[in-house]
Design a protein around this nucleic acid. Structure first.
Length: 215
DNA sequence: CTGACGATTCACT
DNA sequence: GTGAATCGTCAGC
C-alpha cells in the first residue's frame, strides 16, 4: 500500500522548469516555493522534502545579497547564471547553504532554502547528519537541511533541470492564510534592507527555524 | 600575502 | 544568553 502510494507520487511529481525560475519577481517565486519538493539523487540514493521556509535575495539592489551593487566574484559568479541553477556556498567554515538562482542570465537573484519537512530517504538523512533518530532538527535551518540532502559546495552551478538535484511540484498547495512573511534572519549588516519582509514560512510548521517561528 | 569575518549550529550557563 | 567551531572568500596592502 505504501509502495503503491510512493509510486503514484513519483509519477505525479513534476520538475519545475524555466517558466518557473526565469520570472522577474524573486520575492514571489520564493513564496511560491513553499510546498515544493527539492529532490537529490546521488548514486541512486534519493532524498526529498517539502519546503516550509525560504528567503529571497533580490540581486544588485539588495544590500543583504551577495550580489549587492553588482558584486561579481568567483563565489558569486553562479548567481549570474540562468534561473534554475544551484548556488551552494560555505559559511562559518562549516555549513553549506543551498540556494536557487532565479531570473534570466546576468540578473543575480537567488532564494535561500531554509527548512523543509522530510519526505523520502529519512534513513539516509539520518546517516548523513549522524543523528540517531528523527526529530525536527533534521532539516530545520539551511545548514541542517543541506547536510541532510547531501548538498555541498561542490554542487554549486548544478542545473536544476537534470536528475541529480531538482525541485518538484507534486500539486500540494500551501494555504495562503498559512504563509507568514518576516524580515530575513542574520542580515543585520544590510541596513534598511534588513527590514524587508523577504522571509516566508508555513505557519506553525515544526521544521521552521528561528526562535518563535515569527522572526 | 594577510587578516577579518560570515544568509549557522550546538553545547553550555 | 553567550561563545566556539573552522575555512573559503575577499578587500586591502
Amino acid at each position: 500500500m505504501l509502495k503503491l502510494k510512493i509510486f503514484i507520487w513519483l509519477a505525479t511529481i513534476k520538475k519545475l522548469d524555466n517558466s518557473f525560475y526565469a520570472r522577474p519577481n524573486v520575492v514571489r517565486i520564493a513564496r511560491e516555493l513553499l510546498g515544493k519538493v527539492p529532490v537529490t539523487e546521488f548514486e541512486g540514493r534519493r532524498t526529498s522534502g517539502r519546503i516550509v521556509e525560504v528567503e529571497a535575495y533580490n540581486g544588485v539592489v539588495d544590500r543583504a545579497s551577495h550580489a549587492w551593487s553588482g558584486r561579481r566574484t568567483r563565489r558569486t559568479e553562479v548567481m549570474y547564471a540562468e534561473g534554475g541553477t544551484a548556488y551552494v556556498y560555505l559559511i562559518y567554515g562549516i555549513h553549506h547553504l543551498f540556494n536557487v538562482v532565479t531570473n534570466k542570465k546576468d540578473v543575480p537573484h537567488a532564494i535561500l532554502v531554509r527548512a523543509l519537512e522530510p519526505l523520502e530517504g529519512i534513513p539516509l538523512m539520518l546517516e548523513r547528519t549522524r543523528k540517531a533518530k528523527l526529530d525536527h532538527s533534521l532539516t530545520r535551518g539551511p545548514g541542517n537541511l543541506s547536510r541532510a540532502m547531501g548538498l555541498y559546495t561542490l554542487h554549486t552551478g548544478y542545473s536544476l533541470y537534470e536528475n541529480e538535484i531538482y525541485i518538484g511540484d507534486d500539486g500540494y498547495k500551501v494555504r495562503p492564510s498559512d504563509i507568514v512573511a518576516t524580515p530575513r534572519i542574520g542580515v543585520d549588516y544590510a541596513g534598511p534592507d534588513a527590514e524587508l519582509p523577504y522571509r516566508f514560512f508555513v505557519k506553525g510548521n515544526p521544521y521552521v527555524s528561528g526562535k518563535k517561528n515569527s522572526g
